[in-house]
Design a protein around this nucleic acid. Structure first.
Lengths: 347, 347
DNA sequence: CTGAAAGCGCTAACAA
DNA sequence: TTGTTAGCGCTTTCAG
């Protein structure tokens, strides 16, 4: 109940107060079963009275079980990244783990040492949220360095052999991307264009596959940055082309940029242009019109990544999915192709 | 250049290879000036050859300078929080600090011990991103506990005496809120309503002040959660009332919810309803119509918070602002009041 | 300029 | 069931 003391209280202070050895105190705070109830009670009382709290550095140094994860990522502001981080944090906290975060600059190229230096010490586990080249590279470095137990999250687009990849937690966005593309095709669109996020996208692969299956030559991918603004710029030409009637976007933000470009260009959505996003970010359902998108459970992925890590740390159990599969959520930015060339304005 | 060894290489391994004492190695990695250049070079060579990397736990334990901050927050997915975190991380990394993050559940009530337990050890510094009751409480606990150097970020709404609060980095959102309200009033609106985020808002205070100055009785505040969806629900009644011609929203997400509600209700923005948000989130400029909002430099606040912390840690220099002042950004969701009941569509 | 000694707070052996 | 003995890897002293 008492507040802070003038200087840190250690396990020895507690031991003295409780009249036991410091080792017994250690046992108590580590929930060791072999402590007499009476002793345990006494120690706990002392702990409470002194306001004792274990020093994590000392614990780690002394070789106790690992109790922290370092998360490597490039942009904590992106929806997917933020949600994944949140999921990791949730799971980590529930397991008494501390999470450190280290953000990499996507514009920079790091060598091995620089990546490894992000981790507090050899042997400390890490999770990398891999959504771009920089993080994918970091992931590879950590994988190679056998000193760090590592788990990565990302699409299966990472250019990595998935066989036996028991360290990758990924959403099958490739399949939904194909499904979304097919959905558009089935509505009569002659072609579907793709506005890409800056990463080797499995989403793009799914899109390509769906088009090819339909015997359509995929048009050149249009590249965008991660921001709405960059998507807007990138989409301007695209939406200006009346032959373009359907656009699949790398994520919701890009979709919003496209929608804005469409608005500026006077194209009616979904009247003569259909748009699909990825993420189902909180705004998607409340956009005007509500955005057709893919529900990606990033928070679940984050939780799953931590869970996998914990298993690897403890033994090596089989990873099991703990997230929802991506699903296409049809709202109001998609429609049949035939209404093309309708004049501006809503009905 | 070499990859990982089978087991961690310590300062002693380096010392042996370089033919010096481990103490000299310590001096080198701590940039001590009193090491002969030749010795330094030899040590650095050994470090490189062995791929040595200092163990942070050991460093901390041994009483070296503090090199980590714990960030306490409730929701890393909110725009403001995410940006602040980003700013902290930027500054921290630039200074060789590690950032730990610990998220609190806004729905839970923590006692002192639970808050303190979030920090790795006594004496470790913390930054709390205080945007709601839970985090404000955490901030108070840490302030009281003299063992932790603490800095908080948040509006000046925290119900705290600002006098001498050299540990609070805040944006003057109260003043802009008043300015925004006045802006609306000056455009002929008879009243301005306020849709609040879940916190004791300085924004609300600014709004109240502006209304009172204009001799207008502030109407009851409408409360919303943090999500677009909750804002939508909360705003439904409000927008249904034709006497409501202007709404100031606690943040952009709420504004989007209001905009959607307005759309659903058939009210034209800005024709017969004006809406202002807070944040200038990336989407604001690309919404249809583009959102009038307040530019809040959260990233700068985060950087400033870290800077303040560093100063407190080192000596106690004066905190100096390192962020932009909030500014009203007029876009297209605001307009004069008199056009009320004008039919849909722009000029 | 460099080395030797001591110890940070804790856990992991080993005894008792 | 409990206590004792060693360190973990590093940074402080303090001597040379």
């Amino acid at each position: 109940m008492s507040a802070a003391e003038s200087r840190p209280v250690s396990i020895f202070d507690v031991a003295k107060l409780a009249g036991v050895s410091h080792q017994t105190v250690s046992r108590v705070i580590n929930d060791s079963p072999q402590v007499a109830d009476a002793t345990r009670a006494r120690v706990n009382a002392a702990i409470a009275e002194l306001g004792y709290r274990p020093n994590r550095s000392a614990r780690t140094l002394a070789g106790g079980a690992v109790r922290s994860v370092t998360v490597l990522t490039t942009d904590t502001s992106l929806y997917g990244t933020a949600e994944t981080l949140r999921g990791i944090e949730d799971a980590a906290r529930a397991n008494g783990f501390t999470v450190l975060i280290s953000v990499l600059d996507p514009a920079e190229t790091y060598d091995e040492d620089e990546i490894l230096a992000r981790i507090p010490h050899d042997g400390a586990p890490a999770i990398v949220i891999a959504h771009d080249d920089t993080t994918v590279r970091a992931m590879r470095v950590l994988q190679k360095s056998q000193t760090h137990t590592t788990v990565a999250t990302g699409g299966e687009h990472l250019g990595i052999e998935l066989d036996g990849a028991d360290w990758l937690v990924s959403l099958d966005d490739r399949t939904v991307a194909a499904r979304a593309t097919k959905y558009l095709l089935d509505m009569g669109h002659r072609n579907v264009h793709y506005l890409a996020i800056p990463s080797k996208a499995s989403r793009q692969a799914g899109w390509t596959a769906a088009l090819e299956e339909a015997g359509i030559e995929p048009s050149p991918v249009v590249h965008s940055g991660w921001t709405v603004g960059s998507a807007y710029e990138a989409a301007l030409e695209l939406v200006a082309d009346p032959d373009v009637t359907a656009i699949l976007c790398g994520n919701d933000d890009l979709a919003f940029g496209v929608l804005y470009a469409a608005h500026k260009t006077g194209r009616d959505v979904p009247g003569d242009l259909s748009v699909i996003g990825f993420d189902d970010s909180p705004l998607a359902a409340y956009h005007v019109p509500p955005l057709t998108t893919v529900d990606l459970d990033f928070r679940g992925v984050g939780r799953g990544a931590f869970e996998l890590l914990r298993q690897k740390l403890e033994s090596g159990g089989q990873p099991r999915p703990t997230w929802r599969s991506p699903e296409l959520i049809v709202r109001e930015t998609t429609g049949p192709a035939d209404r093309r060339s309708a004049p501006k304005g809503k009905p």
